[in-house]
């Protein structure tokens, strides 16, 4: 009986935070709707939330948003694979050669905070107005966090684990694959998660700037048509995709390291 009561209390506690979050969002939207309706906010700058919600159906039926979503997701996937392979490899090499690490780590960190999206004209010249320019923008912006977190993860491997490997006479390759890499994996995954978020932002941003591809181009098109409700609905869709993306990555991380 007591256990049942405590289970019910726990489950109520589990739902409390998402419900409060949802309630806050609904209250916020209701306030914005009211302010627009009474004329305190200009409806030609911010469309009423009810109109934005109403535009979602149109995005699916008329604007082909599902196809655009898969286009952007494909670009993210290619950039993600490229960044995971090369970011980890560069991080490993930099960690292995301390001179290289000391020489370049600051540069990589500086790159992480630089507005790399501004380099898109360069990639337009190299690749033209196509998906590769967008993928390269995503790849470039995602690279620094993966490199930095790979270095941090491998350097942070506990000495005793390395000594266990030495006591079992592991070769350098075995030491890397059986101890250093799995020990560093949670930290590397933080880098990949950050990197992929940066990649998504930059991919959608570049699609918007060069008016090509998936969701970014859709936002650009709707804005140019002055379809404000549609533009805001598309932006909301991108935010929802980001949230979903983040949650999937979190789940993948937990799957890779079930118990720490």
């Amino acid at each position: 009986m007591t256990m049942e009561v405590s289970r019910k209390t726990a489950s109520r506690r589990d739902y409390a935070a998402p419900l409060v979050g949802l309630g806050t969002l609904i209250a916020f939207l209701a306030i914005v709707e009211t302010l627009i309706r009474v004329g305190l906010l200009n409806r030609f700058i911010i469309p009423p939330p009810s109109e934005i919600i109403g535009s979602f159906g149109r995005l699916f039926l008329e604007e082909n948003i599902v196809h655009r979503f898969f286009f952007t997701a494909g670009e993210c996937l290619v950039a993600g694979v490229m960044v995971a392979v090369s970011g980890i490899a560069i991080g490993v090499v930099m960690q292995r050669f301390s001179l290289l690490q000391r020489a370049c780590e600051t540069w990589v960190a500086a790159f992480a905070s630089a507005p790399l999206v501004l380099t898109y004209p360069l990639f337009m010249v190299i690749f033209g107005r196509n998906a590769w320019t967008i993928i390269m923008m995503g790849f470039l912006s995602a690279l620094p966090p993966v490199i930095l977190k790979t270095i941090e993860g491998i350097s942070g491997t506990r000495k005793v684990l390395i000594n266990v490997g030495r006591s079992f006479k592991l070769t350098a390759t075995q030491q890397f694959w059986k101890i250093l890499f799995p020990a560093a994996l949670p930290t590397i995954f933080v880098g990949i998660r950050l990197g992929l978020i940066f990649a998504l932002i930059n991919i959608v941003g570049t699609e918007f700037l060069i008016n090509f591809g998936g969701l970014g181009q859709l936002i650009n098109d709707l804005a140019e048509r002055y379809d404000l409700a549609g533009t805001y609905a598309a932006i909301c869709f991108v935010i929802l995709v980001s949230v979903l993306f983040f949650m999937t990555l979190e789940k993948a991380e937990r799957w890779l390291r079930p118990v720490d």
Binding site: R158, V160, L161, N163, V164, R166, S167, F168, K169, I179, P182, A183, L185, R257, V259, D260
Partner: peptide, 17 residues
Amino acid sequence: PHKSIGMVFQEESTFPW
């Protein structure tokens, strides 16, 4: 390190993964 010697360390040394 020698294969005839097996070491148990003071610090926790299991592989968490």
